[in-house]
Amino acid sequence: MIETAVAYTLAIFILLAAVATALFRDVLSAIVVFGAYSLGMAILYTFLLAPDVAMTEAAIGAGVTTILLLLTIARTTRPSTDRLFERINVPAVIVVGAFVLVLGTLLPDMYAVGTESAPIWGEQGVLTETPSLYYIENTFSDTGAQNAVSAVLASYRGFDTFGEAVVVFAAAIAVLLVLKREVFT
C-alpha cells in the first residue's frame, strides 16, 4: 500500500516537473527542472521493477543529457529575460489538449498497471508460453546470467546491441561533421 502511495506521489512530482520545464522561460531553469524530472522518472522505474532502466535513465537521462544541454547553452546564448514563465500559446494548447483527450478515451480499454491478465503474460489470463516467460524460465540455463535483462541484451539479442553501437557511432560521426564545418560541394 505504501508503495502505491509513493508511486502516486512520484507521478505527481514528475507531472509538475514536466509542466515547469515547458513553462519556464529561462532555458537554464528549464534544463535544471528537466534533470529533476529525469531523476523522478528513474525512481518511478525502480518502483515499477525496472532497476536496469532506472540506472540507465539516471546516468544518461539525468546525467549526460543535462551536460549536453548545458554545453549547448554555454556555446550559444542564454536569452536574458525578465519574465519567469512563457506566455501560454492557446492554439497549441487546444491541439495538444485534443490529442491527449483522444488518447485518454483509450484509458478504460487498457489493462490495469501490474495485472497478470495483461497480454504480455499470455492470452485471457491463462499463463501460456509467451516470450517473456520463456526468458524468465530459461535465462539461467541458457546463458548462465542471473540478470534476465543483461542476458537478453548481450546474449540473446547481442546483434541488436551491436546495431545500437553502430547507431551511436553514426551519431558521433554526424556530430563531428556538423561541428567541424565540413563543406560538401
Binding site: L48, L49, A50, D52, V53, T56, E57, I60, G61, V64, T65, L68, I120, W121, P131, S132, Y135, I136, T139, A148, V149, A151, V152, L153, R157, D160, T161, E164, V167, V168, A170, A171, A172, A174, V175, V178
Partner: peptide, 23 residues
C-alpha cells in the same frame, strides 16, 4: 517477476535517444 523484454527495448531506446539529442 517483471518481464525483461520491454526493459531491454527501453535500454536500447534510451541510448539511441541520447545519440539523437547529441546530433
Amino acid at each position: 517477476m517483471a518481464s525483461p523484454l520491454p526493459h531491454v527495448i527501453v535500454l536500447t531506446a534510451i541510448v539511441v535517444g541520447i545519440a539523437l539529442t547529441a546530433v
